[in-house]
Amino acid sequence: MSHTTPMVEDGPTGADRLKPFVPYLLVLPGLLFVMGVLGYAVVGGIILSLNETDMFMNKTFVGLKNYIDVFADPRFQAAMLRTLSFVVISIVLGIFMSMSFALVLYKVVRGRRFFRGLSLVPYFVSGIATAVMFRFIFTTSGGFVNTVLAQLGLPAQSWLGDPTLAFVVAIMANCWFMVPFASLILLGGIQTIDKDLYDAAAIDGANPIQIFFRITLPLIKPMLGVSLIWVSYISFSTFDIVLALTSGGPLKATELVSIYMYELAFRQLNFGQGAVLMVVLLVFNTVLSLIYIKIFVMGDRRHSEAGK
């Protein structure tokens, strides 16, 4: 091509020399910043996990010693098991609640906007505030639950003093915080389903339960995947809620990996081992997310795109 007319301005006409770089100039600043900070932290954390640190943050390279020590540490093993059960229970309960809320928010006609708006409120309450609120719901003297129990003539419970009950309360607080977002995601999935399908299924003689399992559930699979990622991400990295609710107690009954990590690094000043727990959290969460994406989102891309 031998063009002599000068290019007047940038834009789709294209001969502008800068043009090929425009998208990169747009996309890269944000990415470099994010990668700079988070990548720096992740890499720094991995390096830190290979070092032993003393109280003055002097580091000596020790290879995998921290990993060996941490994995052999019974307190870590307990925290890990506790985290896994916390996550599993949270996911099961959280998805059940999200699905129920989503279905109800879909079905309700009068005041639909109000209920939807209300349902998302907890999402905007900080983890710390959530924890404080739940503490005053369940606190022994003057808590909401015990006050109600008293009015019913029932004995007060030491909710946060009992290891099992405290664990349950922590899961409840976690669900309170994470369910709203998940249920709106699911609601979005349910709304994209063509209403004719329900009518067709009803004419075919399916009852509501069959309709849910045969029509709704398969069609919202991608959304289910997204909300599963959200729910398990939040549960795995729950930190502020539990820290402010129970500080890991009583008797370490709610000491999750994230809490133990904080304890190791910031209380015992063992940053090397703390960093090992960081790697553990990172790997678990990434693997879990990838599994969900593989199962739910990738496998059903056709659906989600058709739904848009």
């Binding site: 063009h3 007319t5 290019m7 007047v8 834009g11 789709p12 006409t13």
Partner: peptide
């Protein structure tokens, strides 16, 4: 006028 390299708006 040859417009191959003239911007759309011009």
């Amino acid at each position: 006028r040859m417009v191959n390299n003239v911007h759309a708006k011009n």
